[in-house]
Design a protein around this nucleic acid. Sequence first.
DNA 1: GTCTTGATTCGATGTTCGTCGATACAAGCT
DNA 2: AGCTTGTATCGACGAACATCGAATCAAGAC
Lengths: 103, 103
Amino acid sequence: MTVDEAVDVAAAFKALSDPVRVRLLSMIAAAQAEEGVCVCELTPAFAVSQQTISHHLKQLRQARLIDCERRGTWVYYWLVPGTIERLTAVLGRTIADRASSAA
Amino acid sequence: MTVDEAVDVAAAFKALSDPVRVRLLSMIAAAQAEEGVCVCELTPAFAVSQQTISHHLKQLRQARLIDCERRGTWVYYWLVPGTIERLTAVLGRTIADRASSAA
DNA sequence: GTCTTGATTCGATGTTCGTCGATACAAGCT
DNA sequence: AGCTTGTATCGACGAACATCGAATCAAGAC
């Protein structure tokens, strides 16, 4: 793994290093059938303020894990699967290294 | 996903939120055929001091991503696949949610 | 025993992060 | 125009983090 690749991957993992963000991503993923979740549906599930949720959503967005769009008064968020697939591939590679060397 | 589960998963992702630790894990995984890598083989690949490498290895160990053992003068590290498999499962679940709802 | 080498721990320092209150922005309604 | 509701940004604060130098521990060589 190159240094640049490690920097990229670590930045994505950092976006998932907070319990609030992990739950946000999970909720957004689970609600994908509804073509996006409104922020007002996410916020009441957490014990932190609305500004803090907005801050965490921004982190997830900057990591390209989610994207959003304003529809009238509300803003809807949905999952961007590409980054998650990339992380899954990186983790899978480390386990594959182990498995092949154990054989 | 429960709050407790999110706390656990986030803690593991936090251990992977630094480029040095991502590379350390990758190197340890790649060297699994040698029954563990010595710290002295890992350190020269990085631009930080040996104490810092030791600090990062401790983080990875506390996250149960790796384990170590002293063999004579040297300390050897190897991969613990269980935690990585758990992270892979969590990420895969979010993508699976998306795929099933898209169908 | 002393010396050397490999590795961890301790203490300190500058930086980043999570959180909140206050403020600003966006859009609909009257 | 104002008012209200939903959302994002700004500023500040305390906590956590990455890094290093110094000290410490562990094990072998002498």
